[in-house]
Design a protein around this nucleic acid. Structure first.
Lengths: 225, 225
DNA sequence: CCTACCGATCGGTAGG
DNA sequence: CCTACCGATCGGTAGG
């Protein structure tokens, strides 16, 4: 008797967890497809196969679902970006070209998670309309700029690149990424992935080479040093 | 009798035209402040000082108001960009630096119209949510890229810059603009103008110098030619 | 997890 | 240019 009750509780809570996750996934799909406002709670419920009112046993509000979605990239950033390696050591040991290649690969690997792609699209299309998303994006941009500013600063210190304002370099390097992703997610994204993405990968690779060529220390000057 | 009737007709149609323009301005203000969807016809009417139903004697729908707003930048583009000057002559006669300065000034002067700033904000914040705006933006980007691609191509032809893929150069040059404006309008715009705008002007000037330095033909190579 | 309901708000129209 | 109204849709709740 007791065993049976326990079993039921376990099964029930497992099903509940499962439903909560299905709601999460359905919300990502719908928000990324139609935008946060245009996707209704009714549609989310329909996709999960339950009635709208039942959503509220798992989440208190539509905003709370979005809140949980925005926590996902932060978790992912943690696992990808927060290695214990020292940036200065990495730059010195790899050199300019290889360090930049590694950084580019990291950003790409971060994007290849299918959730991340959809979540970025949600962020891009709701950047203005949602204060929650605006705050998240501002902080993300600010963190990225700081990281790259200090990276370029270290490169100058080790005479790997010309002494150009590292803040300017960071924004030259990152604005191309920003603009490319925005364009991709807003103008060309069709949910099928891979289609346009390869073209963007190609463009970003060329951009990286252009920047490297523009800032690397000239050979002659190096010799004369 | 006849004279009086005529006069009344003129006065009436003048007032009608005036109201139509006040609706136009109110819509620009409200759409740029809150976004197209969030600004309601009731609010527009309230700002103009009439009732909502009266709006429909001037415009058939909310979408038609937006349509008219989007025609404004095209008219402005016509007056600013479509001079009869030949780009090739301009590049040869001015040289690299002065041509780039002129182009930057043109873009800025285009932005300094107070309507344009608000309309750009509408475009940025509604880029995804509104198919009309998406189409307008796509075409604008495509036109800008083509123009700059051919401009860089001409510079290469006249050996003013290094022979780098002109398509890449166009997107290096323009993506910084795109990203800066997007960031300005979405994260820092507060309607008061001038506040952050100066900072962005400064950043864009530095960007232009960075690009010029990266692509200009080295003196030595020029001599050896 | 459901049915049945709520108030709020929207763009737009009829008729004067 | 107005009053008065329309159907549609939204997020969320009560109560079981």
């Amino acid at each position: 008797m007791n065993k049976n009750k326990e079993n039921n509780t376990i099964i029930k809570s497992k099903r509940e967890k499962d439903t909560k996750e299905r709601i999460f996934k359905a919300a990502i799909d719908l928000f990324s497809e139609k935008g946060f406002d245009a996707a209704s709670m009714r549609e989310i419920a329909e996709m999960v196969g339950i009635k709208k009112a039942s959503l509220y046993s798992h989440y208190n509000s539509k905003d709370q679902i979005l809140e949980k979605i925005l926590k996902y990239p932060i978790k992912r950033m943690g696992t990808v970006g927060q290695q214990d390696v020292n940036t200065e050591e990495l730059i010195v040991s790899l050199g300019l070209e290889k360090f930049m290649d590694l950084a580019g690969d990291l950003i790409l690997s971060w994007m290849e998670d299918p959730y991340m792609e959809k979540i970025w699209r949600i962020i891009c299309i709701e950047l203005y309309h949602n204060p929650q998303i605006k705050k998240f994006y501002s902080e993300f941009i600010s963190l990225s700029c700081s990281y790259w500013e200090s990276a370029f600063d270290l490169m100058i210190k080790h005479k790997l690149i010309k002494p150009i304002d590292p803040r300017l370099l960071a924004s030259e390097y990152l604005s191309f990424y920003g603009n490319s992703y925005m364009e991709y997610f807003i103008l060309h994204y069709d949910g099928s992935s891979a289609s346009y993405l390869d073209e963007y990968k190609n463009r970003i690779e060329k951009h990286s080479k252009f920047i490297i060529n523009s800032i690397k220390q000239n050979e002659e000057i190096k010799l004369g040093d």
